[in-house]
Amino acid sequence: DHLDSSAIFIPYIEKLNLENLTFAAPDVGSANRIREIASYFNAEMVICDKHRKRANEISSMVVIGDVTNRNVVLIDDICDTGGTLAKAAGLLIEKGATSIRALCTHPVLSGNAYRNIENSVLEELVVCDTLPLREHPEKIKVLSVAGLFAKAIRNAYENKSITSLFIHSQLRNK
């Protein structure tokens, strides 16, 4: 089983205590992941549909859904150059969002990623410590995966299921 960062991100989002919460998928491929998290919070979701002409270059992007006066949380699995998150955040603000933050499991952060994030309208980019950061700018917050890994290892060692660490289990127990 692949471990899922929702076990780390959900408690973080809960502590933010955001009103008018909406979750955003930065691309169509992330829609199912965002739908599960939005369902957990009983929140709305939107999708940023992007079109690329070349790798790492977005030619156009549209928002499917309404973000007017909403606090939006973008969630993605990998942040490479930060271009998609920065562009999506800017578009969501243009469409009326109150605030935008992004949560991303793996911070590859290549090329101009640090500059793209710092120059974006994102309030913060929250990442897991699955990859070391080259820089530690103010906008980037790192959450540890150690506790999640420890629980998974303990459960595997004790011949217990690790399913309880996944969001679909948390939805059943909520």
Rank of each mutant, 00 (worst) to 15 (best):
S5K: 12
N71S: 09
A146F: 12
M61A: 11
I100A: 08
T81F: 07
E158A: 12
R172V: 03
R101E: 08
D66G: 02
D27Q: 04
L143K: 12
L103F: 06
V142E: 14
E135C: 06
V63C: 15
N42Y: 07
Y12R: 08
M61Y: 02
D77V: 01
R101V: 03
R101L: 10
E19T: 14
E19G: 13
L85Y: 01
F23G: 03
E94P: 00
T84Y: 03
I47V: 15
R52N: 11
L165G: 00
P107E: 01
P137L: 13
Y114R: 05
I117H: 10
F23A: 07
V67G: 04
V145S: 12
T84K: 02
F149Q: 13
N116Y: 04
N116C: 06
K95N: 08
R33W: 11
K15Q: 15
K160R: 11
R115T: 11
I153L: 14
S161N: 09
L109Q: 01
A113W: 02
A88H: 00
E94Q: 13
G29M: 09
D80S: 13
K15H: 09
I117C: 08
I162T: 14
D80W: 01
E123M: 05
I93V: 12
K174H: 07
A55C: 04
Y40L: 05
R172D: 03
N71D: 07
S30D: 08
I8Y: 12
V62D: 10
Q170Y: 01
L18Q: 09
V46M: 11
I93H: 03
T130I: 10
L148P: 10
R70Q: 13
E44P: 00
K50V: 05
P132N: 11
T130R: 06
K95S: 06
Y40P: 02
L109R: 02
H136Q: 14
I153F: 12
R54T: 14
I93D: 00
P132W: 04
A150C: 08
F41Q: 07
A102G: 03
A150I: 06
S120P: 06
A38D: 07
E44R: 06
A7S: 15
L165K: 01
P107W: 01
L74E: 08
S110D: 04
